[in-house]
Design a binder for these strands. Sequence first.
RNA 1: UCCGCAGUAGCUCAAUGGUAGAGCAUUCGGCUGUUAACCGAAGGGUUGUAGGUUCGAGUCCUACCUGCGGAGCCA
Length: 437
Amino acid sequence: MPTGPSALPSIASLPARVGETVTLEGWLYNKRDSGKIRFLVFRDGSGYVQGVVVKKEVPEEVWAASGAVTQESTVRVTGVVRSDPRQPGVVELGVTDLSVLSLCHDWPITPKEHGVDFLMSQRHLWLRSARQVAVLKVRSEVESAIHDFYYSRGYTRVDSPILTPAACEGTSNLFETQYTEDEKAYLSQSGQLYLEPAAAALGKVYCFGPTFRAEKSKTRRHLREFWMVEPEVAFLEIDGLMDLAEEFVKELTGRILDRRREELKRLERDPAVLEATCAKPFPRIDYRDAIEILKGKGFPVSFGDDLGGDEETALTEGFDTPVMVTRYPISIKAFYMQPDPKDPEVVLGLDMLAPEGYGEIIGGSQRIHDHDLLLSRIEQHQLPLEAFQWYLDVRKYGTFPHSGFGMGLERFTAWMCGVPHLRECIPYPRMLYRIYP
RNA sequence: UCCGCAGUAGCUCAAUGGUAGAGCAUUCGGCUGUUAACCGAAGGGUUGUAGGUUCGAGUCCUACCUGCGGAGCCA
């Protein structure tokens, strides 16, 4: 079992050490003082443990240190691990020695409520709070599960570039940067176009990295910098893509339920919906049927309209799993999506909507594999042909049907955690008018 | 960009146009089983900025700044 940089045991390991005397290093999370007995809650990143300091049982200087120590001071503490008779399965530390390594003054984040503006300005410190720690652990678990999912199925990870010469879709929401003296570059909005040639090389590929959208979005479901995982699979068509998306979401959700129960509990996340997601098939609804359902619910929508947040929430009502909507009108979707041969007004696209109002977590499609059809779509969208010549080459040299999707890591994490706003689901959120810290 | 809401102590919020207040945090005191511990005391303010109305403005009006929520777009 490898140890960290310090050979000291972690708080997380204490339940297996009942009866032992251990020394820990960490921070003071909270303190309750009751005359001749003090309760100090320590944290070290792996967990939390309550230390009990009794005046007549410790040397005078240890008692003094336990009184002087403040929230977020760094400490080295020694004590006996014992089960807490009031909470079975939980341990506490009978403190025998305590030294303050660094006394913390004026810690700004108190145990009471704070406003969003204040917390966001203190994001680097806010990260230490129990709720943020839990969310970041879930996020990390999701990231790890993503790699495990694809690796175990024979996918090759292909890192797509972050600096790109032109837009994938439109140019109004790109971050621009100077590449050379007379050439611009743009931060990537998607790795998809680069994955398609890679799928011709490796068959099954995926990329996972940061994505940048300079949209003027100011909602809880948008970030300007977010992480997206994108699989792209050769010879996979729309029905197989839907199977892949469902299997993917089921596996990630199951992984969180298996390994992050503690964090879900701390976040007061009811696991019922996540358990249903693992157990039940996801409904698959054609866009045309979705429009009829929405009309029945009183929405003034007709064929050709895109679905807004309220419509998405209405469609998922009554389901405790994600819902997949397919076959959107060709007019509202990207140029590269494959038209349905049986219904040329729609494309073989797929959106997966999370339940409970969390909205779109996956968007994907079968791609156009016919060279001339793709060429005509590029022309219809008035995209610069020379910029897409390499993309057309995928169809020119041994073309093949293929499909892929993108899943937003923060949106998925937000849904897992039951956290309403994406800003808590990434360590340092980048939002409109906010790039500090 | 558009629509709506807000800005008062370090933080979260009160205050009919008439003496600027509470809780938490901080400091001091009390308490041997606390769980956002509790009890007592103290310090802490140019009410976002600039102008205006009024005998009198935190409160009403105008402009600006900052933030929040939502829309469009999307993951």
